[in-house]
Amino acid sequence: MRAERSTIVFYIMGYIVISVLTLLCLLPFWLIISGSLSAEDDIIRDGFQLVPQHFSFDAYKAVFSNPMQIFKAYEVTIGLTLAGTALGLFFTSMAGYVLSRKDFKYRDKLAFFIYFTTLFSGGLIPWYIMIVNYLNWKDSYMALLVPSLLSAWNIILMKNFMKSIPDSIVESAKIDGAGEFTIYRRLILPLSTPGLATIGLFLGLAYWNDWFSANIFITTESKYPLQFLLYKILASAAVLKTNIAGNLGADFKAPAETLKMAVAIVVTGPIIFLYPFVQRYFVKGLTIGAVKG
């Protein structure tokens, strides 16, 4: 097929825009990689450099100073991420599907009920009291898993993705005698793969990046997820540097510079492995026509 002129123009524009944006995203990351491999003093003196003046693996050595602990933390994080993403996706997609059904009478009210939670919140303390005093999840994996399972954002996005599925599909399946859950599982889920992949990605990222719940709920070291462990490594590096033991003022400063960057690199791991996997589902053709045919 001969490419039209307009298509060529479009491609040129596309390549330029995308390439420029990609460069803008890549350059800082390159600087961080270079920084993480630099000597601490070089970074403090001269700031970011494209190529390290003196190569140093000190920052990575600090991150991996206790390999068994890091290994264990990876295990915890991977487990949480997998379980959280799977369960979260299940409940999110069910809720999103119900809200997307135009014949469901209370869908607007329920959508409002869910969205309202993003507007008002009682703050950290009552939420903490609920989880610790009533659910008794202090120092339990449940506190890391359950409170992040669902978010109003994800449910409403899911609903939006599913809205583009024609009602006729549901109608005809109903006539064939399929139950609601069967319709959801057999028809809706396969048709929503890009949406599911997106929400799954977001859930996965949220679980992977979550250090805050561990920070307030987990007190046993062997239960630390990766992000929280790294966060602690950064914090204690800062304390070591201030010689806090001899200094009883409350002046705590930011962590050692190169360590910050090494940690940034270590946590970026999942996107390099996870994202291409998710991208498999961003393919056209998994659409209505394919199923009908």
Binding site: Y128, I216, A238
Partner: peptide, 12 residues
């Protein structure tokens, strides 16, 4: 409590 968020944790 860890250093960074000890105020939050004390409050909680």
């Amino acid at each position: 409590t860890t250093w960074n968020d000890w105020q939050t944790k004390y409050n909680l």
